[in-house]
Amino acid sequence: MVKIEPFAVEAWMDAHETKCEYNIAETCCASISLDQLQQLSEDKERPLIDTANILNYGDIRGSDALRQNLSRLYSAKGNFLSPQNILTTAGAIQANYLVAYSLVGPGDHVICHYPTYQSLYEVPKQLGAKVDLWHTRAEDDWAPKIDDLKSLIKPNTKLIILNNPQNPTGAIIKKPLLQQIVDVASEHNIVLFGDEVYRPLFHSINPMDSEFPPSLLSMGYKKTIVTGSMSKAYSLAGVRVGWIASRDPELIETIAEARHYTTISVSQLDEQVAAYALHPNTVHSLLARNIQLAQKNLELMERFMIKNEDECSWVKPLAGTTAFVKISRDGKPVDSVDFCQQLLEKTGVLWVPGSTCFGDEFKGYVRIGYVNHTEIIKEGLDKATKFIRKHLDNVKLAE
């Protein structure tokens, strides 16, 4: 029997997210309705759904319309990616699972960028691989060190896993370091796998910046796989559409074979909505809406951090939807679970405890999702400030 560790962050959200008043743990940009999506389109008369379409299994590997639109997004600056090199999945969580399920097993070694979403390192473990975590630290602005990566390489290393932008910190692996990582993977002929689910939500670094990170698919290394989703940057978690893309047809075919055991096809209705959202008539205004929302709400986060500078510290995120904030009392980290439980009980504000959901080493840390609707973020942060000033002395310290 496979040993499955509890999925801590999902268990926390499952237990609390429908019972809170202010969800500031949510990692998606504020979700939108189908009506709102249509209003964002330049062609508002174009129907979202083809109601005459027969609801059979549809295109097994993903609809032509959706894969064409994804191909366009990955083919910037003439670096064409064929739609045939894209597979759709039921969300990025299935995409990530399939990459590991297809490529690693007992006797293999995997290196995973850390901290990150638990499934990225737990699933390879469940499949029998040995996993080493490539640690990042706040004092380094959560940037991984290339020498640490080199020291982790083994003869049986099959996969290097990156999360860029990073959950929970909002940090990015900048282009120069990304190139060094590609060079290491290429030297050792290791598959490089990038979870890019928060891409392209870059709100605090300009695309013209020389350090702006391109997708891994644009870095010139063939043995690269990326995953993405409609959930985070595109505000459509409810359609449950993700994808896997690679410039290596052999990798795509290997994953496609494994995919048959988990997915016949993705819902036609979901794929039609996703294709509509990623169409050139819609995607630019949708992303502009979400980047503006992130920038506006990040200003609220910055004010919160200034108000609570004696108790809270962080590395300001450059991308994505989350911030990783350390909370201390008299210079000592609080018990993040006790803090989050009391915060929820007394104010209705939901945060995620870092020590439980991202690793014991993150004592005092909480993950805050700040790209929900602005009024929720503002009111929730105001209540959190009042809680810190009134109740922090009653919160346990981390052991």
Rank of each mutant, 00 (worst) to 15 (best):
V191S: 07
S210F: 09
V241F: 13
I252D: 09
K222S: 11
T169K: 01
L251I: 04
T254M: 15
N206Y: 11
P213E: 13
R247V: 06
T224D: 05
S215V: 15
A256K: 04
G220I: 07
A237T: 04
K223A: 03
P200I: 05
L162I: 10
S235H: 07
E211I: 06
K222E: 14
Q166P: 04
A245Q: 06
T227M: 15
G242H: 06
A185N: 01
V239D: 12
I172A: 02
E253R: 14
E187Y: 09
G220F: 04
L177E: 12
L178V: 05
I255A: 07
I160C: 13
K174E: 12
E187T: 12
L201A: 12
S229H: 12
Q166V: 02
K232S: 11
A171C: 09
S246A: 09
S231H: 11
W243H: 13
I173C: 11
I190C: 10
L177V: 15
I161E: 03
G238M: 06
W243L: 11
E257S: 09
H203C: 02
G238S: 02
L217A: 03
N163C: 09
G242F: 08
L236K: 00
T254D: 11
S218A: 11
L192P: 05
K232N: 12
V191L: 08
Y221D: 07
T169M: 00
V184D: 12
S210C: 09
M219N: 05
E257T: 03
F202I: 00
I255T: 05
P176N: 05
G220W: 00
M230F: 12
K174G: 14
L217G: 10
S229K: 10
E257H: 09
V226K: 03
V191H: 07
S246K: 01
